[in-house]
C-alpha cells in the first residue's frame, strides 16, 4: 500500500504530517479513497468467496484469474491514460477483433508468426494514431472519433471473416499461452503463469513508471486537470494527447495478441462490449471520467474485481448468467457514488 502512496505526486496533494494520524493522512489523500475502496471491495469479495464457496484463495484460482483477465488488465491500463486526459476510447474492443482476425489469417497464410505479432500490435497503434489525429488536428470529439474507429475496425474484421478462425496447433503464437508451473501444488492446485500474464505485468509496470515518474505522465495528469492551463504553461499538449491514443491503441493490439494466444482462435465478434468493461474497470479503480485523477494500479484492481465477480458468479451456480450485467452495473454505480461523495467532500 505504501507503493500506492508514493505515486501520489499530483501538485495538489499536501505532504502528510507525521503527527497527524490516519484521519489526517486520509484527508490529505482523499483522491486515493476510491482506489482504496476498490481494493477493499476486492478483498471483501475474496473473503466472501472463500467463506461461501471455498477454494478461492488457492493457487489455481488465482492463476486462472490472472490468466483469464490479462487482456482486460492491458485494456484498462490503456484506457487509464486516455481517461486521465479527459478523453475516451471506444475503439479498443473492435480493434482487438480486427487485429486478432488479421493476425490469425496471416499466420495461417504462412507468414512469420513473430512478424505477425508485431504487426498485430502495430495495427492497434495505427487505429490509435488515426483517432488521435482526428481528435487533435480536426477537432473531432474523442467520443465520435473513437466511435468511428470502433465501427471501422469492426467492419473490417467482418470483411476479413465472419466465422471463427482457428490458429494452427503448432503456431508459435500459442506459445504465449504456455503454462509454466511456478509452484507445483497438490493435484491440480499449481501456481501457473503464462507469458501473457507476464506481458500484462510488464505493461502495468511500464505504465506506472510512465505516469508517475516521467514528464510525459505529469503532462497527462495536467491535461486532465485543465487543458487550457497546460497549454498556457507550455506543456506539449498536442503531442501528449496524440501519444495517449496511440498508447491505448497499441495496448489494444497487445491485448489482441495475448487473448488470441490464449483462445487459439479469433472471430469478428470478439471483444464486443470490452471497451465498456475496460471503462468500468478504470472507473471502479478510482479514475475520474473527467480526467486528472486516478491510478493505473487502481484500474488493475478494477479489472480484477470484474474478473473475480465472474468467478464468484460461476462458483455460485445459483445466480443466473443473465444477471451478470446487472451486477456489473450495480458495482459500477456503487463506485461512482463513492467517487461522487469524495469529490463533494473535497470541494468543501
Amino acid at each position: 500500500m505504501s507503493t500506492v502512496t508514493s505515486f501520489d505526486n499530483r501538485p495538489t496533494s499536501v505532504e502528510p504530517k507525521r503527527e497527524g494520524g490516519p484521519a489526517r493522512w486520509l484527508k490529505a489523500h482523499l483522491g486515493l479513497l476510491p482506489t482504496f475502496a476498490a481494493l477493499l471491495i476486492f478483498l471483501a469479495m475474496i473473503v466472501y468467496g472463500e467463506i461461501a464457496y471455498g477454494r478461492i484463495l488457492q493457487a489455481s484460482t488465482v492463476s486462472n484469474l490472472l490468466i483469464n483477465n490479462a487482456h482486460l488488465v492491458i485494456l484498462a491500463v490503456g484506457l487509464t491514460f486516455v481517461i486521465l486526459t479527459g478523453g475516451i476510447d471506444l475503439s479498443v474492443g473492435a480493434v482487438i477483433a480486427f487485429s486478432s482476425v488479421a493476425g490469425v489469417l496471416l499466420t495461417n497464410a504462412g507468414w512469420n508468426p513473430w512478424f505477425v505479432i508485431v504487426l498485430m500490435v502495430l495495427i492497434g497503434s495505427l487505429f490509435g494514431l488515426i483517432s488521435g489525429v482526428l481528435i487533435q488536428f480536426f477537432d473531432v470529439q474523442p467520443f465520435i472519433a473513437t466511435l468511428a474507429m470502433m465501427f471501422l475496425a469492426r467492419g473490417l474484421a467482418s470483411m476479413l471473416s465472419t466465422t471463427p478462425e482457428r490458429l494452427a496447433d503448432e503456431s508459435p503464437m500459442r506459445g504465449l499461452a504456455t503454462q509454466f508451473k511456478l509452484v507445483d501444488g497438490p493435484r491440480v492446485n499449481d501456481l501457473v503463469i503464462t507469458p501473457g500474464v507476464i506481458i500484462a505485468v510488464v505493461v502495468v509496470l511500464v505504465a506506472v513508471f510512465l505516469l508517475h515518474r516521467t514528464r510525459f505522465g505529469r503532462t497527462v495528469y495536467a491535461i486532465g486537470g485543465s487543458e487550457q492551463s497546460s497549454t498556457l504553461m507550455g506543456l506539449p499538449v498536442v503531442s501528449t494527447k496524440l501519444w495517449v491514443y496511440v498508447i491505448s491503441g497499441t495496448l489494444a493490439g497487445v491485448a489482441a495478441v495475448v487473448y488470441t494466444a490464449r483462445l487459439g482462435s479469433a472471430q469478428n465478434i470478439t471483444g464486443i462490449g470490452w471497451e465498456l468493461d475496460a471503462i468500468a474497470a478504470t472507473v471502479i479503480g478510482g479514475t475520474l471520467l473527467m480526467g486528472g485523477a486516478g491510478f493505473v494500479l487502481g484500474s488493475v484492481v478494477g479489472a480484477l474485481v470484474l474478473g473475480l465477480m465472474n468467478v464468484l458468479i460461476t462458483r455460485d451456480g445459483g445466480i443466473r448468467p443473465e444477471t451478470t450485467t446487472i451486477i456489473t452495473g450495480g458495482i459500477l454505480l456503487v463506485f461512482v457514488l463513492l467517487q461522487r461523495a469524495v469529490a463533494s467532500r473535497r470541494r468543501e
Binding site: L276, L289, E322, V336, L337
Partner: peptide, 27 residues
C-alpha cells in the same frame, strides 16, 4: 439529483438494462 456524470449513469443503465430484459424473458 445525485449529480453523476451522464456518461456513467447511463452506462450503468446500459449494462443493467440488457440484463433486466434477459431476466424479464428468462433469457
Amino acid at each position: 439529483v445525485v449529480g453523476l456524470q451522464p456518461f456513467i449513469s447511463t452506462l450503468v443503465i446500459l449494462l443493467a438494462g440488457r440484463g433486466l430484459a434477459k431476466v424479464i424473458t428468462e433469457g
